[in-house]
């Protein structure tokens, strides 16, 4: 589904990703771990098409198609979803209206009519129950005054609404208490299928107790320096990142 070949990317001549290779197939869950500043969030942003980052070498393919010239919204229409570490507040636009716009713009891009209002309401109800989101919450302005946990839950609610092929969760566990973490993980697990894939980006192993990865990759100084199965995450939790750094230096 997703194939990243020798990806180099940076901002204003400053290279952050220094040759990433990664292949993610349908039905898989990949975890990308690594110390702060290793390039985890940059990788997520580059896959989602943030224009601030310039790809200097290599490419990102989705179902064989090079995404190089695709704007962020086009990538979204193709089925890429990024759950943000810091979701943006949009005063005056309710969660419901925001989702309506997002879904109907995606449908428009595919040549479909707007989703009928009753169908939209049904979908919203169904997905908000999945994330245990209160109805009142949906009429609040998007992310405005939301707690950290509410923001993250709302991100996964958006993911549930948009049903992406590839979901990238960028530090979704940060700022979550254990109950919120469980709700969010439970939501992600229920959305998982053999047709979609998830990339979980995290500093800690905690979230991986709930969203169990098939593969774990360690990112260090813009490169994947180690890959393994979920045991690697446990090892990192026990030993920290220093041994990876030392290994990488050798």
């Amino acid at each position: 589904m997703l194939k990243i070949n020798n990806l180099h990317a940076g901002v204003e001549g400053n290279e952050i990703l220094k040759g990433i290779d990664l292949e993610v197939n349908a039905g898989e869950v990949h975890a990308i771990m690594g110390p702060n500043g290793s390039g985890k969030s940059t990788l997520a942003a580059v896959i989602a098409g943030k224009e601030e980052f310039e790809v200097t070498e290599g490419n990102v393919l989705l179902n064989g198609e090079d995404l190089e010239d695709a704007a962020p919204e086009e990538r979204a229409h193709k089925g890429i979803f990024l759950s943000f570490q810091y979701p943006v507040e949009i005063p005056g636009v309710s969660v419901t209206n925001f989702m309506k716009t997002a879904i109907n713009e995606t449908r428009k891009a595919k040549g479909l009519e707007d989703m009928p209002a009753n169908e939209m309401l049904k979908l919203i109800r169904e997905k908000s129950e999945l994330l245990e989101i209160d109805r009142k919450f949906l009429s609040r302005s998007l992310n405005e005054g939301f707690s950290g946990g509410e923001k993250k839950r709302n991100e996964i609610f958006q993911m549930a609404m948009l049903e992406p092929q590839l979901a990238i969760l960028d530090e979704t566990d940060s700022g979550l208490d254990i109950d919120a973490l469980r709700i969010v993980a439970n939501g992600v697990n229920k959305l998982k299928s053999k047709n979609n894939a998830v990339i979980v980006i995290t500093h800690y192993q905690r979230l991986l107790e709930y969203i169990v990865p098939d593969f774990v990759h360690v990112l260090h100084e813009g490169k994947i320096v180690k890959s393994g199965d979920k045991e690697l995450a446990h090892e990192l939790e026990d030993k920290g990142y220093d041994w990876i750094k030392q290994e990488a230096a050798v």
Binding site: A45, A48, G49, K50, E51, E52, A71, P72, E73, R75, A76, H77, I80, F81, L82, F84, P87, V88, I90, P91, G92, V93, F98, T101, A102, I103, E105, T106, A109, Q158, L162
Partner: peptide, 20 residues
Amino acid sequence: FYLQSRGIPNKEARALLMYA
């Protein structure tokens, strides 16, 4: 970028932000 990543095209995303 946040709005665009949700499938909202640049022009509409700009308008939403100005409205907000």
